[in-house]
Design a protein around this nucleic acid. Structure first.
Length: 367
DNA sequence: CGGTATGATTTCTG
DNA sequence: CAGAAATCATACCG
């Protein structure tokens, strides 16, 4: 394209420069004499006044002769070149815009939330798994999840529809402008770069609108999330039976109340809660037991007594979750310091309670 | 309604 | 990253 322009340009120069007379043809007649000038102005005015009377054909013919003027392409080409060298080149320097960090942030968030990016399957499952990882994703929360997902899908659909609308409008508008400029390029010099620049400007404007859309979508997602996050905090106590089972495990493993992953799974299954809920429970239980040993002591005794009278099935469970045989309180320390902590819990209650591992033995003995 | 119990979350640590 | 500790927020009970 550049070559072509240069070629045109050189042709233009070749034809323009050596024939100064050509300019005379373009000059307004009667520049010198004031009287004549007045006369000319009057003529022009007259022409303008009567322009509506002129037939369309006549106007078209004039336009045509102008368009067909042999100097026209050459002049346009020169003017275009000048334009490019002045205005356009100045603008071009600031053309190189770095990717807007704000926009990138929004994009990333939308993708992370599963609004943008891959459709339904990947997106929503990613979002679901993210929430599931946080809450443990189990029975009742499943309802909330589906609700959350439905809302998210709604947002996503609106977002995509709007985005598409914008894109379509942008394309239509761009095409329109480009066509207009192409049309105009017949009657005034328009460099290809100028068109490019115009397109870029339009794109920029539309991307600003797009950013607003993204922003409000992000806000909507945030509001949705916070609502569901709050809802998630709505807790319900575990079932009596579940708490019973957890307490049984805790007090029978008091010397080392750190259930292994498998034990947690087992407990979770039995109590109808998630593994992370089991972890929460043990975390809370340990800290609260330690904080209030006196009171917990009663509970410990209670559960010790219970354990004593428990059926052999209970022993079986313990044997399963505690594979390293009787006297195995230290069998499954989740941290390297099982001995130490076991000692701590042991020393706290050693007198009144035999300790979990021994309790099996005690049970056996008592039976 | 107020106080306690309790499940969940956050922050910090090794 | 699991667990301790602190904290939050709701459930539950007298």
């Amino acid at each position: 394209m550049d070559d072509q322009q240069r070629l045109m340009h050189s042709q233009a120069m070749a034809s323009v420069v050596p024939q100064p007379g050509a300019y005379d043809a373009m000059q307004q007649p009667g520049v010198g004499d004031p009287d004549q000038r007045k006369q000319e102005i009057g003529d022009v005015l007259q022409q303008i006044m009567t322009i509506t009377d002129q037939s369309l054909d006549e106007a078209q013919a004039r336009k045509h002769t102008l368009n067909c003027h042999r100097m026209k392409p050459a002049l346009f080409s020169v003017l275009c070149e000048i334009k490019e060298k002045t205005v356009l080149s100045i603008r071009n320097t600031q053309e190189e815009e770095p990717p807007d960090p704000q926009l990138m942030r929004l994009d990333n968030m939308l993708i992370a939330e599963g609004v943008a990016g891959p459709e339904k399957g990947g997106g929503s499952s990613a979002a679901a798994s993210a929430t599931a990882a946080a809450s443990g994703g189990q029975p009742e929360s499943a309802i909330e999840h589906s609700d959350y997902r439905a809302k998210l899908a709604q947002i996503r659909q609106i977002y995509h529809t709007e985005l598409e609308k914008y894109e379509q409008a942008c394309n239509e508008f761009t095409t329109h402008v480009v066509n207009l400029l192409r049309e105009q390029s017949r009657t005034r010099p328009i460099a290809p770069k100028e068109i490019e620049r115009m397109v870029a400007i339009i794109r920029k404007k539309f991307s600003a609108i797009e950013m607003q859309l993204k922003q409000s979508t992000c806000e909507a997602v945030m509001i949705l999330r916070s609502r569901f996050l709050d809802a998630r905090r709505k807790r319900r106590n575990f079932t009596k039976n579940g708490t019973e089972l957890l307490n049984e495990y805790f007090y029978s493993h008091l010397s080392n109340p750190y259930p292994s992953e498998e034990a947690k799974e087992e407990l979770a299954r039995k109590c109808g809660i998630s593994v992370s809920q089991v972890s929460n429970w043990f975390g809370n239980k340990r800290i609260r037991y330690k904080k209030n040993i006196g009171k917990a002591q009663e509970e410990a005794n209670l559960y010790a007594a219970k354990a004593a009278s428990a059926a052999s099935a209970q022993q079986l469970v313990q044997a399963v979750s505690d594979p390293s045989s009787p006297g195995s309180g230290y069998g499954l320390p989740s941290q390297g310091m099982g001995g130490q902590q076991g000692g701590m819990y042991m020393s706290l209650n050693g007198d009144n309670y035999q300790g979990g591992d021994n309790s099996v033995g005690a049970n056996v003995q008592s039976q």
